[in-house]
């Protein structure tokens, strides 16, 4: 009986102290400077973003809506014997952004990075602090005529294959997709549209779900003809006569990422499966004096001919000469 009393007393004490202990997961705030700039070879306006880290003590970083952009910096990009000085401007945040006020960013609107070129970025603050990084834009790839299909649909095959050759010493990530351009006659006017063709479709809950290839080291793309057919059928709205659809061209878009962006994607690829509980996400940064990413990519296009009979088999009008 005495033992029972002792046990009950012990449990009673435990129950009284069993409330949830508070946890303070926050360490000392540590301000970091963040510089992001990806030079795109498919556009003439390049954008850089320069900001500082922020601190909230409520676990909800979306509750921080103050402007954290560093607005009085000098951002320059050097290459060969030239320099591009970025200007600052403001833009409205996109829909769904946590920021409500216009945000400042840096840009240069006549700058198309060339392939196979060294670039160096420098962001300098008035207090003398500087962030730096370098990148080397990828070399152009060469599409293989001998190993690629040249017409859609290919002869005696049920998929479309395009291969290319890289001239890089270190493999780089690439991503590619097929698109087709078409006109749709609406109220007597031809409206231009672009339709992406995924790598494949899978049925999910009775609907076609498109899957696009992830960036990878693979230097080819092959897409089943069935996927082309599904994409071609998807553009019909069910009302407009099919002959009012004019298919103009099939295009392959291929993006080649530089070494920095390749590493960025590789770090994302290491994200674990859904049942692993990971608390530290891999984070690739390559900015000296801060964090962020400076990288570049080039985009190449290749048109593929198509058979007019193939287009007509869908009821559409082929647009260009065969």
């Amino acid at each position: 009986m005495k033992l029972l009393k002792i046990i009950l007393l012990f449990i009673g004490v435990l129950v009284s102290v069993s409330c949830e202990d508070d946890l303070n997961p926050f360490g000392e705030p540590d301000e970091k400077l963040i510089l992001n700039c990806v030079l795109g070879g498919d556009r003439d306006t390049q954008i850089a973003n320069f900001s500082r880290s922020y601190y909230v003590d409520n676990f909800d970083p979306y509750s921080y809506t103050d402007d954290n952009v560093i607005g009085d910096a000098h951002i320059r990009v050097w290459f060969e014997d030239s320099v591009k000085i970025f200007n600052d401007t403001i833009a409205q945040p996109g829909e769904g952004s946590k920021y409500e006020k216009p945000l400042k960013f840096y840009y240069h609107n006549s700058f198309v990075p060339a392939p196979d070129t060294d670039y160096e970025i420098e962001a300098a603050l008035p207090d003398g602090r500087k962030l730096k990084s370098i990148t080397h834009s990828p070399k152009l790839v060469k599409f293989s005529a001998a190993q690629s299909d040249t017409i859609i649909p290919p002869l005696e095959k049920d998929f479309v294959l395009i291969r290319w050759r890289s001239f890089e010493e270190t493999p780089l990530y690439a991503a590619s997709k097929f698109t087709f351009i078409y006109f749709k006659r609406e109220n007597g006017i031809n409206i231009r549209y672009v339709k992406d063709i995924p790598h494949k479709y899978e049925k999910h809950n009775g609907k076609n779900v498109p899957f696009f290839p992830e960036p990878s080291y693979i230097s080819s793309i092959d897409v089943p003809l069935l996927t082309f057919e599904t994409a071609l059928e998807e553009i019909w709205d069910g009302v407009t006569p099919k002959e009012d659809y004019t298919i103009l061209a099939f295009i392959l878009e291929t993006i080649i990422y530089d070494q920095n962006l390749t590493s960025y994607y590789a770090s994302k690829a290491e994200l674990e499966e859904g049942f692993s509980i990971t608390v530290n996400e891999a984070n690739y940064t390559n900015i000296e004096g801060g964090i962020g990413i400076f990288g570049s990519y080039i985009k190449q296009y290749r048109a593929i001919k198509f058979s007019h009979d193939y287009i007509r088999s869908f009821g559409y009008t082929p647009g260009l000469t065969e």
């Binding site: 997961p25 926050f26 360490g27 000392e28 705030p29 540590d30 301000e31 970091k32 963040i34 992001n36 990806v38 795109g40 498919d42 954008i47 973003n49 900001s51 500082r52 880290s53 922020y54 601190y55 909230v56 970083p61 979306y62 921080y64 954290n68 833009a91 945040p93 996109g94 769904g96 952004s97 920021y99 945000l103 960013f105 991503a175 997709k177 992830e214 960036p215 878009e253 993006i255 962006l261 960025y264 994607y265 608390v279 530290n280 984070n283 964090i291 962020g292 990413i293 990519y297």
Partner: peptide, 28 residues
């Protein structure tokens, strides 16, 4: 465990064909 010392708006290149702007593709 590792404490957190703050947040920053990380630039996520979700769309590898790079259609968005910086502010849409940044997440804490």
């Amino acid at each position: 465990f590792t404490k957190l010392t703050g947040y920053y708006d990380k630039f996520y290149i979700d769309d590898y064909f790079f259609g968005g702007n910086y502010f849409d593709t940044s997440r804490p």
